[in-house]
Design a protein around this nucleic acid. Sequence first.
RNA 1: GCGCCCGUAGCUCAGUGGAUAGAGCGUCAGCCUCCGGAGCUGGAAGUCGCUGGUUCGAGCCCAGCCGGGCGUACCA
Length: 554
Amino acid sequence: MKQKIKNLIIDAITCAYEKGDFSEKSVPEIEVEVPKITSHGDFSTNIAMVTASVQKMPPRKIAETILKYIKDPDRILAKTQIAGPGFINFFINTLSWHSVLRKIHQEDVVYGASNIGNGKKIQVEFVSSNPTGPLHVGHGRGAAVGDSVANILRFCGYDVQKEYYINDSGRQIDTLGKSVYLRYRELMEENIQFPDECYQGDYIRDYAKEIIALKGKALLDQDEEQSIFFCARFAAERIIKDIRKDLMDFGIEFDNWFSEQSLYDTGKVNAVIEDFKEKNIIYEKDGALWFKTTNFGDEKDRVVVRKNGQTTYFASDIAYHMDKFERGFHRVIDVWGADHHGYIPRVTGAIEASGQSRDRFNVILVQLVNLLREQVPVAMSTRAGEFVTLNEVVQEVGRDAARFIFLTRHHESPLDFDLELAKKKTNDNPVFYVQYVHARISSISRKSRERGLYELEWNETAVLMLQEPEEINLIKAMIRYPEVVEDSAKYMEPHRITFYLMDLASSFHAYYNKHRVLSDDPLLSKGRLYLVLAVQKVIRNGLSLLGVSAPDRM
RNA sequence: GCGCCCGUAGCUCAGUGGAUAGAGCGUCAGCCUCCGGAGCUGGAAGUCGCUGGUUCGAGCCCAGCCGGGCGUACCA
């Protein structure tokens, strides 16, 4: 619809130029928007004001000229007007609105989809939590955001891969092994001083117990280093298995699990370092190897190989991101916790250094989650090993509520997550508010079958009965949906869909409360049923992009 | 110190250059003979942190300041 308006304007300007009424032919990007105030029309454009300086004419005069030349072959316009400093307002024929209902029913599960991605390969990497402990609520938010962004991009025509990067190498894995090993010895009734730098959580003891069940005392009889290595591998594998299960319970499945260790095994980390040395962007200082990230906008250079010969996490990260591009991804998106934001310039630098354009790489930063219960913060301290896991939250409030609430804020804005609120079944809880629309329409649908009114065929006379303001309002809301999806893909902001759904739900509840769908008038009933079933489809489509179910009964 | 993010109604937040700044919660006043009341309608509530600038037009862009969070490792 918006595009149709744009075309009318472009044609009018071209025509005015040809007739000599405009001195300038070029047309800037035309912006057509839906005014906030209904009396300003269904659509409006600021084109007259924007081109005033170019055309050397007053805005209102330009607006008049455009209107003079506007043609409307499909008769979609009911009225036009010039308002304020030079806005052109368009009022659309109600008839033109109704055709979208047919479109929604025809397109069904793909209504709102587009092909702006044009089949380009794009990767979304998210969660990528270290395999040193279970996922906590913060990871849950990153998971919800990453998964939803990936879904949205896929819906917009990208060829999307969801990837999890496993940091199964380096110091933290050693620490994990040491932690489990020490708990193991402790359980063997040795007096152990458990160090602060080791992982404190109870789950470490659980793994130690499992090892005892499996191996008995065997680990005490062998070389300590060997035992720690065994504990590390055992625990890491168990943790990854648990993480995978927690994510499954959260409704998230990855296309690929990528091992950091594999980058060392295939020699890719060393290869990158050698390559950068040749390019003269890695140098030696104080016994360490430094990558000149300052060449690429970072505030200081970064170490890739430490004095003791060990590579840093950054070194494998360079190799990892190069590998992503080698795998043919046109764009690469990382979802990180906001506390890692200082890391962006160096990774961007690495990407540029390896010959890729920096705008093919995007980072979505996800802010922290404050877990509350009845408005009171739930105490959490990772250091003491006290944290609420994602799984506990999902068990308590359910997958749908958790996922939806994670997406009720802009991802860069901190989020208060109230466990009690998430369980409430009132309109305080946005999840139920939206899902309730779907269930309610399912109920109407069932009722309509009982009464023999159910029909999904396009029936123009029935649909044209829809003239109530609340009905037009619903139709207009649904017309907006494809654009909302496109914008949330463009800006990688799933919360736009969440807000849209809450808005659509509100319009529906208002309509439902005021007008009966199924009445004594069969034709009107059919028209209204056709309308609400369209609403149901849009709600269901939107929820599925968020990874939330659309129940028929609640 | 420097860098990034945030500052919008009592609270939690939408709003990435348009006209009279919105929603939920809370508050006040109402709505069930009826398709699911897990719902709806209406009112009150604002110096968009402050000060300048850019332009036809700024909550949005730019500069400076104030307040909060995070980062600033040869940790991840």
